[in-house]
Amino acid sequence: MDSDDPRRFLHPSTIAQIARLDLRARQVVEGFISGAHKSPFFGQSVEFVQHRDYVPGDDIRHLDWKVWSKTDKFYIKQFEAETNLRASLVVDTSESMLYGRGPMNKYEYACTAAACLAYLIIKQQDSAGLYSFGWEVKQAIPPRSNQRQLDAITKSLDLSRPSQQTAIRKVMRQVAESSPIRGMVIVFSDLLTDREDLFKALEMLRHRRHDVVVFHILDDDELTFPFSGMTKFEGLEEMPHLFCDPKALRQGYLEALEEYLVEVRRGLTRLGVDYTLIRTSDYLDAVLSRFLHMRMSDRASPVRR
């Protein structure tokens, strides 16, 4: 990598060197936004739409005093986004997330990505919460928008250790129940779980009109299966062990993987879930920027509920 490239700090191996997640997130986000003309986070997302008459009970903070001074009448200033975005970051902390031979394993990558997004969201005054789960929700931080919320999220991610199997249906129900208001659910997982459960779980979220975004994180090894030599594969999450020559099985493995990926992509697309497959070797900034791009173009889409 060129030493003049500002993105050199965004390489997974560089980010991995930053221990603290909040710093990581800052590094990533600031890094990739640094080239923009102005920061979107200080312009607010509140755009004036119209005035309406004051009715008792309205927050007097929204009174337009300039209009009152000229007309002696009370008008309420109405803005486009009156409400905060409530983003729930759902991070898979099951045992399977532990795999990874690169600088970061899937879990670390997921945490970093989640931290980055939390940082972004909180920076623009929206609220972000965190759910980490395995067999059940291990930690839940309800969405808030204050600065300390980011610390809480990063600390929580930092502290949690992947273990247990995944029970995604149960977990999503819990997430849905704890988020009565329509919001955004961003899932970070390797989705190595029962597909039916997965679809059911996400369908439930969608049913509650949550905007669901799935970051499907897989390790390079899982995608390319580069192993050779007799190997004993020890299954995580209580899967059986297998002793084999991986080269001989590679073809079959890749086929099965392809089927799985197609099934997941199709299933999630059908549900209207925003799906992104990420390799642990991918640059985070690229992943995030691509995601933001997609979000922007999707917003204009009439399909989205």
Binding site: Y99, D190, G229, M230, F233, L236, P240, Y253, A256, L257
Partner: peptide, 28 residues
């Protein structure tokens, strides 16, 4: 000897491996 000298890898995507093993066994 190759069979005796093997590596161990803790593997997450066991599902596909098992599927491949089932599928490729005879050909292999």
């Amino acid at each position: 000897i190759n069979r005796m000298r093997y590596k161990r890898i803790r593997w997450a995507a066991m599902e596909f491996l098992l599927k491949a093993q089932k599928r490729m066994r005879r050909k292999m």
